[in-house]
Design a binder for these strands. Structure first.
Lengths: 138, 138
DNA sequence: ATGGCTGATGATATAACATAACAGCGAGAC
DNA sequence: GTCTCGCTGTTATGTTATATCATCAGCCAT
């Protein structure tokens, strides 16, 4: 099993569990509707149910949303409190979660202008992963 | 007129001009459909027309998309080539464009794991602007 | 236990965002 | 002139997200 995380695992509802498992199994970002298709057999059958569970899981830091894709991924770490970013392969959609050090976070927050006191960072790096890169450079 | 930018201003089509003006006048992010409503009087009347113009303007660096809002803003600088980020007030939607220095960009790209060669950075900082901040701290 | 309150889930409907695909037109090549 | 190409218009539909109301289970006071 993959419940070997050091989580405090704050008791999930049935729906939240189904959707988190789905996302962990997929190992790639899924749209809410893709998740819906995949969990229909478990009795979840309407978009709001999926969005509710996703929002709950995001609040718990166990799922993240890829803004640039309108897609969701399970947190690699079980749960995070906001110090993360993503690298995404634009060809195959592979996603790598990046843990930001406190310094990294501080550096990012420091980019904000005086006028806006930043609370939350959204950082996504898009590129090409090794397997999607052309073998030779030309 | 407001064509006093130091642009090379790569001749825009009528639609592109209408939509860019609209966005510059608004001085805040607008959804594609908000733009559509606002430019209807000029003869633009269907979503694809708006999206086409927005995409063209984005290719030219004159409009940016706020991923976290599904909204569009005119580039503060006339045009940029990708070295920018945003700070967004979560209360009033005010947006401040942040120009990233080459070092900033390099620092961000350096966060990418070996596995993914980054090409593009999406960075958005959400927080509260001065006017939306509570006056006293407690 | 019963009744009513509250919070979670289920279901319907629709809003908001985005694009595929094709039609028509105008300007330049020849 | 007419062909072709690129831009704009139009229809239709696909995709993402949420507002709203209904239902149900647990809980607590009585």
């Amino acid at each position: 099993m993959n419940a070997h995380h050091h989580d405090h695992a704050p008791k999930l509802s049935r729906n939240q569990n189904e959707i988190l498992s789905c996302l962990r199994d997929a190992n790639e970002p899924m749209s809410a509707y893709a998740i819906l298709d995949r969990v229909r057999k478990t009795g979840i059958s309407h978009p709001p149910t999926v969005y509710r569970a996703l929002n709950d899981l995001m609040r718990k830091g166990m799922v993240h949303r890829l803004q640039s894709r309108s897609a969701f991924v399970a947190c690699d770490h079980g749960a995070c409190d906001g110090k993360f970013a993503f690298a995404i392969c634009r060809a195959c959609d592979k996603v790598v979660e990046i843990s930001l050090s406190d310094e990294d976070q501080a550096g990012l927050l420091a980019l904000a202008p005086d006028e806006i006191a930043p609370e939350q960072v959204t950082l996504e790096l898009a590129g090409l992963c090794q397997s999607c890169r052309p073998a030779a450079s030309a």
